[in-house]
Amino acid sequence: MAMQSVNPKHEKGYLLALIGFVSPIVVFFTIFQIYPLIKNVWFSFTNIHNNFTLNNFYAILTGSSFWQSTWITVKFSLISVSFEMVIGFIFALLLNQEFHGRKAVRTIFLIPWALPTAIMATGWKFMLQHSYGPIPWILYWLHITQSPPYFLSMPKMAFASIIMADIWKTVPFCALLLLAGLQAIPRDLYEAMEVDGAGWFFKLRKLTFPLMLPAITVTLTFRFLQAFGVFDLIWVLTNGGPGNATMALSPFIYQQTFNWLDVRAGAATAVITSIYIIGLVVVIWITRSYVGRRYATQ
């Protein structure tokens, strides 16, 4: 696409102005984002004598911890994001109705989002304690479990714990994003369909859902990439345990680097994680341009 330039390029000082305006962020990004990524690549391909080696990758890829972490990360992202999208969508539909105190509810929705993850994880740790936490007991009182479950000391339950806490923190956020998408759908489209005789399910299926697809993909993308890098929640709530049951990739890198002091193993894991992220971005980019073409409204 041809750039419509407000200032023709040959105008005096164009380049200088451009450099002046853009270079600060480029400098910051180069030093604090790009350099570390490249440095990690270098670490991952060298040994302590700075000689080239593939051993770091070999060690990781043949061990089981890395694959377990990958699997845990994928599982965590998929499960938590699916729950969040579905519940978030329902919440958004509710919030899109008119009721007393709707604005107050919207404000309340911002609280879980704004809480620091590390701090809310601390709170959840308390709430999930076996003997005095409310969550195990509520489950027991509602006869959902036969006794108050041990959340943080059993692998499966620990995994469920991080999902639960993540859902609590993020559902309101998803709901607000989706609500914005809902509110961007012109009202008269609904009215036109009503006049033509459609019921609520028909409208949801033929109007709301397809017109929400762009907002859904944006929210999904954002959430999935965020969930893939999960660290604070796991570090505070379960510390990756019990055993390694909740050791996602980010905490795994951290553990390798700062607990085991195996910097090069950590770097190799970080490089592969970066590749995962790039892969995800590419997939999402392709999907989005497809969705964009198919459902573009502008």
Binding site: P186, D188, L189, E191, A192, K206, L207, L211, T297
Partner: peptide, 11 residues
């Protein structure tokens, strides 16, 4: 009904 905005379904 024909709406002033036409209210055509964009998708």
């Amino acid at each position: 009904m024909v709406f002033q905005s036409y209210a055509l379904y964009p998708h």
